[in-house]
Amino acid sequence: MTNKVWVYVDQFKGEALPASWEAVTAGRDLADKMGTGLTAIVIGSGVEAIANTAIQYGADEVLLADDASLEDYRANPYTAVFAKAAADAAPDVVLFPTTSRGREVAAMAAIDLNTGVLVDVTAMETEGDAILATRPVYAGKLLCKVKCATRPQLVTLRVRSFGKPELDESRTGTTTAIDAVMAEDEIATKVLDYVDAGGGVSLSDANVIVSGGRGVSSNPAEAPADLSAEDQEIWKAHEGFRLIGELATVLGGAVGASRAAVDAKYIPYAHQVGQTGKVVSPDLYIASGISGAIQHLAGMRSSKVIVAINKDADAPIFKLARYGVVGDLYDIVPALTVALKERLGK
């Protein structure tokens, strides 16, 4: 265990999150630059297959904590395993994906290891074994360079900010088993259930996002007359989100929303993009019926190609859009779905 660069692999129910492989890819790069090997640490139960995949993505060695007590993610037992391994082997750098679990384990381990954490980093430079990281602050209105004086430097990488991972099935490496650190009766939290598990909205990983805003409620169709005014509005908006969903499906993407759409109950909060929603950077972001308030832009401004569809030619979203259509989303979105379906041969 002499590798100076480590990666923490985040997994759920035995499946690694794609962001973990982005971190392994970034870790491989960093290890090569620093002239050292790459260790991946995998924690869970029934997660052996992940260890093998981590090697194929670029790890030289995997530390594998596979134990029934680690079946479900819980902050304390997971942190205990990671912090003990890191204290024993003293790596210089550990990269984590900035997922809910990755961020939390990094934060807690920083306390245990008396070190610091550089959170949600979008770029890294090296000076010897020191990392100079760049991270957005104030919702991306500013960028900040950060560094950590102590070791290990714990760094969480923003999802979709580093290169795409590539699998090399011919790669080999070693896997070393490590033990769980906490006994079940020492753990104060119990996981009882998952609700909506699997039905979660994976906006952060999405390559394409099609979003709708308050504009989806201006549906030309008549809502059933027996509904209340609020329900009529929601009825109209649901039709708009159905059209948006169809476009997203054709593009293999996810559905996003503005806060106005979420607050008006057109769609659940899990879809909200923005400063108090999810921060995303897909390759293609299509905003329809969204004005482009600063808090919305904060969540999607780093998207590669932005398309805006809005009735109002003066909507601020057009300033950020590579392509804009001034028009009614109820006309344009279904027509775009047909046109793209044809071109994609679907």
Binding site: F12, S100, K190, V191, Y194, V195, A197, S202
Partner: peptide, 15 residues
């Protein structure tokens, strides 16, 4: 409590 995670909600109990 229910925790909002990537995959949905994790229901946990704690002391």
């Amino acid at each position: 409590a229910q925790r909002a995670m990537e995959e949905g909600r994790q229901v946990v109990s704690s002391k």
